[in-house]
């Protein structure tokens, strides 16, 4: 258990309850306290990983660059952009991307990209190399493959922060078996530093922190 939160993520009181929070425009109706807005771990896998005390390696600060895969409507990536520097948000589906645009509106260093995370060459002309972190939350088959394909963007001392959804890989298999396969496959390009089930907040999800080999 680590108490090291990224710079810019703090614990604040909301209605008498201590919760993680970042500073920025509210995005999804989360409670606010002045400039601080609560980070709901039930709606954000990265939020859950931080709430569970995982050592994500995210540091925060204007110098930190992040590639976020599977930004969806921007719930989590808005918190990331609140604390980090240039943040590239890749999302495949146009529908949620509309909400993502709204979240990006008030965040000058959050760059929305409508692209398929399985095809990095379609955004490698935009996303810079040696990003400090890749945060991945894509509900598709082959989640380990997506992480491996995108390793080209990550700095040698960068971190992959990955949320694996078991049901996206195979609905009929035991999640534990799926997670083992994903961890195995990841070793092709990464060294897994820590992993943990996120079931307290997200059923059948595994949080993984890894670094490039």
């Amino acid at each position: 258990m680590s108490d090291e939160l990224p710079v810019g993520v703090e614990r604040h009181q909301f209605d008498g309850e201590e919760r993680l929070a970042t500073q920025g425009e509210p995005v999804y109706g989360e409670p606010t306290d002045g400039e601080w807005r609560a980070w709901n771990p039930n709606r954000s896998k990265l939020g859950a990983m931080l709430a569970l005390g995982m050592e994500t390696g995210l540091e925060g600060g204007d110098e930190e660059t992040v590639l976020y895969l599977g930004a969806a409507s921007g719930t989590t990536v808005s918190h990331v952009a609140d604390v980090a520097g240039p943040t590239y948000a890749v999302e495949f589906a146009p529908r949620p991307a509309r909400d993502l645009l709204e979240a990006a509106d008030s965040r000058p260093r959050l760059f929305p990209l409508l692209a398929d995370a399985r095809k990095p060459e379609t955004y490698a002309h935009v996303v810079e190399r040696d990003v400090d972190a890749i945060v991945q939350d894509v509900a598709t088959r082959g989640q380990a493959r997506v992480a491996l394909e995108n390793a080209r963007f990550l700095a040698d001392d960068g971190r992959l922060v990955l949320a694996v959804k078991a049901r996206s890989e195979d609905v009929t298999r035991e999640p534990a078996a799926v997670f083992e396969d994903v961890r195995d496959e990841l070793t092709e390009g990464y060294e897994v530093l820590e992993y943990r089930r996120l079931d307290d907040y997200h059923a059948d999800h595994l949080g993984i922190v890894a670094r490039p080999r």
Binding site: L113, L114, E121, T122, A124, H125, V126, V127, E128, R129, D130, R152, F153
Partner: peptide, 15 residues
């Protein structure tokens, strides 16, 4: 248009 249509095999230090 360049954002939407472009491609690259590898990223670089674009900034």
């Amino acid at each position: 248009a360049a954002i939407t249509e472009g491609t690259a095999a590898e990223p670089a230090d674009w900034p």
